[in-house]
Design a protein around this nucleic acid. Sequence first.
DNA 1: GCCGATCCATTCACACAGGTTATCGATCGC
DNA 2: GCGATCGATAACCTGTGTGAATGGATCGGC
Lengths: 276, 276
Amino acid sequence: MDRLETRELAYFSAVADELHFGRAATRLGIAQPALSKAIRQLERKLGVTLFERTSRAVALTEAGRILTREAYVVLEAVSAAAARTRRAGNREPRLLLAMKPGGDGGLLPAILTAYEREPGVLPAEVIFEADSARALREGRADAALLYAPPDDLDQLDTETLLTEAPVAVLPTSHPLAQRSSLQMADLAGEDLHRKPSEPGEMPSLSTLMHLIALGRKVAVLPRVLTTPLRDDLTAVPMTDLPSINLLLAWPAHSTSPSVAALVRAAASAAAAREPD
Amino acid sequence: MDRLETRELAYFSAVADELHFGRAATRLGIAQPALSKAIRQLERKLGVTLFERTSRAVALTEAGRILTREAYVVLEAVSAAAARTRRAGNREPRLLLAMKPGGDGGLLPAILTAYEREPGVLPAEVIFEADSARALREGRADAALLYAPPDDLDQLDTETLLTEAPVAVLPTSHPLAQRSSLQMADLAGEDLHRKPSEPGEMPSLSTLMHLIALGRKVAVLPRVLTTPLRDDLTAVPMTDLPSINLLLAWPAHSTSPSVAALVRAAASAAAAREPD
DNA sequence: GCCGATCCATTCACACAGGTTATCGATCGC
DNA sequence: GCGATCGATAACCTGTGTGAATGGATCGGC
């Protein structure tokens, strides 16, 4: 039938979130009847019931559950499209590389040096983002450095720069710190630092190191994050964990010569590092 | 500013295609002034110039080139969202598996048998599509069998079912047919069958085999496509080509238990085949 | 250099999509 | 039963997208 509009998907998304027309309408800044009408029209366009409504409760149908996911993808793609287009329109175009502070495995200077040797590239600028993959997917950056496996590599192309076995970080005084290698089972009794799922809960690296030195925690990290290491801490390689990769990622459909140049530069910088 | 609407992106897309407001408007079934106004509004929303217009010519700006790509992605995501939601709403839900005729490496019966043993799955149905990856991305199928590397694995998750070195198919009477292996250089003088870029130009497999038997062509194909092989043809392994993979693919964000069951079934069917 | 052709922008009247308020009807807790 | 809650419906209003007509700039042909 007719084309699905962004507005309709955003409305649907709000109702699917709240499961409550009144609250969803408030959140959207419109009145409830307008929202009801819009959802009915969406259902009519699709020829499908999206919500089971009684006068007391609203529930998603199976089709509604599918559309919940799809709408999210579409809305993200739309806002990324807008962000990328706006950036491309700036009269002072730059290549934006997103990374987590310290998340470059020490390669950043070499990458940028190699990049700037490439002919005809845009000036590069590094932006620091806790979730660099997200910045990339939202169109706020042209490329990103990140550690694999990220939660979601949808729509991203990647180049592996470094592959490293993870190391356990322990107080030097810890009994296990003298071992030449460890397995996860060895750390069973420890308070192991886990990646928090909530952003913002992540303590800074130096805080984490401090906690470890105090004997409160141990952590398993890529080796590159552990150099330099405090005197009172020791890093021991883990043998039974998958290796951790530092990746350069960029939008899968990128056609930017500057991004291509950055990929070449990063690959050559990583190759130069490989020997040691 | 305001939200980008699907309609605006479709309008933009038409103008970017035609580089001509009048023709684009005709194609869209609207009048030209409406189109001009819509594009202007889109430019205002984005704060960016998308077209350089003179009274004689229309050209894309850099930002316009970026949006051309982005708009395509968004519009495809929108129509896929609609297609998937509509299918989910059917009262007779099925799992649709797309494949090219003959593109299953002989695994299909085993996959379906294993799938139907899984508890609580939807009835499976196979649909034949020349471009099964496209059917998947457009939301017309839940999963697809295809040979890697497909042109575009964006947004798809995959499981490798078979990995095979490609074989050259030659007339048995051909001098090279007696060799135990070949490299691409050996085929330099031959009229090598290439994957046509235009769909529809691809001759059927049996036609191709006929051409080879006549000595008009030779072909390099995955081994699975060459069994059974006519008596007057011979298959010789290629040693310097990347191996060809048969993949099962599905939308990266799928949460369908039936798709998960299909992936398990396909993996086990492939594992059972592995020995021979 | 003038003229006609081409092509995008502007103007204006109009219809309609999408918004609002007011009201209704169903359902639940008490 | 009664009031509270919540979605659907009705009636109305407004902004915006639409289309016919028109304007204005540029180019090619002669």
